[in-house]
Design a protein around this nucleic acid. Structure first.
Lengths: 254, 254
DNA sequence: AAGTGGTCTAGACCACTAT
DNA sequence: TAGTGGTCTAGACCACTTT
């Protein structure tokens, strides 16, 4: 059977881009251009070795990249196949917010309130402390180009032994906030995204309509003993935020 | 300098779990237990080779896994370091919905309406067709345990040359819906998640309160010529759906 | 039996960083 | 100069699937 050598770009070893990345890019482009369609089998690894004159490990690495990206699926003994796109593969990344918030020019954080409170039943449950125990309440507003954008409230465990209090409260930018202040004491975090409508108080602070729909991002941070350190939530009016993503095959335009 | 051999699990080559995965797991566990904290340097690759008696490539593969997971960060010439957790690393996966919807027992799809319409300006813009061109409108309701859960409306390009129409409309489960019907003609999809409040009509169909907050997931599918195939959106009342995720270091409990 | 992907070796050479 | 990660080789052996 004659193999048609179509689109056979060569690997250029002079480039800064390593061979495995080049091969991954070449195959990804072929798929995105429709030369290989979902369900089609890719050339076998040994074929790719010969075609591109690179070693098996390098080919495998390229294939693994595409596999991690969800572009192909491998099956031992059968081959490597182009995956059909799955709606469910979509992931929404919070880091789309990061550039907005880290821009010191446009983003300002206002500390609205900070004080010691006694934990009510709800806070006690979330933080795993006893009702009535002293906790720190922090309330911040993030402004984007002078406009209210995010309203953040947080309860921190009050531990006189660790002076995390001051450094936490001092934070006037959200940048370092969630990286952890005592940096090495944060182990993990659990997050929820929900929708709500703004309360009157929230609407007033965010200069939005009451009962406007909003995102609510809740977070709990844990230390290395898996004990909660803080519980809080961000509220952002729906008209100011959307999450976008895409699934499927993409490549640079010609 | 005496190296303290702490937590030195051995690689077991008899296991089904490959060596690189074992090493990744061992290192991940050490980090999660706090034996190595954010900012700490991992043993160098050559040290790991000697300690675990495996080859450099296998060590590299383990490190690469942790790097892909965002647990460590590598720096040429300096070493490999435990990353501090980043709030922004959080990703929310749509596939949390999949098990719900694919469960044929609990999930039923009701086809509410399907008919040919002429594209108005909005639809024409989204689908890249002329105003007045005929498009297919489909309206579905997904019920979960007999309760309305998702309300789905979609506009499809009407192309008599391709009989995608029948197969699309026949779909009574959402399962195969987004995998594509003519399976090989879907190239990519763009998605948005927004918040809205339910209109009266939506609230009636979803048996929810009017003006209740809701997720709105919009999608556009493209073919291999990068032309839109369909545009549609899902609406789900906020009290029925939340997205959850976590960031940081996790390991199996002891 | 032949072909496929999956793991792994024992090195090599390079680029970068610390000292 | 010595140590670090980054790339790559040219095979080996294995498990699985197809013929």
């Amino acid at each position: 059977m004659a193999v048609v050598m179509k689109d056979l770009e060569k690997i250029n070893r002079e480039l800064y881009e390593p061979s495995y990345a080049q091969l991954a890019r070449i195959l990804r482009t072929q798929i995105a251009r429709g030369h290989m369609r979902p369900g089609d089998r890719l050339p076998s690894e040994s074929q790719l070795c010969r075609q591109y004159d690179i070693s098996p490990m390098t080919v495998r690495r390229a294939i693994n990249i595409l596999s991690d990206e969800g572009v192909v699926v491998t099956s031992q003994g059968k081959g490597t196949f182009v995956k059909s796109i799955q709606f469910w593969d979509a992931t929404f990344r919070l880091d789309r917010l990061q550039p907005l918030i880290e821009d010191e020019e446009k983003a300002k954080v206002k500390l609205l309130e900070t004080r010691i409170r006694k934990a009510d039943s709800h806070v006690a449950l979330k933080l795993g402390v006893k009702i009535g125990q002293r906790v720190i309440y922090i309330c911040r507003l993030l402004l984007l180009q002078e406009k209210p954008f995010l309203y953040h409230r947080e309860y921190l465990i009050y531990d006189p032994k660790r002076p995390i209090v001051e450094s936490e409260i001092e934070t006037t930018s959200l940048k370092g906030l969630f990286e952890g202040t005592g940096r090495s004491l944060l182990k993990s975090s659990a997050l929820n995204i929900e929708v709500t409508v703004l309360t009157k108080e929230e609407a007033a602070i965010l200069e939005s309509n009451g009962a406007a729909p909003a995102f609510r991002i809740e977070h709990i941070f844990y230390d290395f003993n898996n004990h909660p350190i803080s519980w809080g939530w961000l509220v952002c009016p729906g008209n100011l935020l959307r999450f976008t993503t895409s699934v499927g095959f993409h490549h640079e335009e010609l």
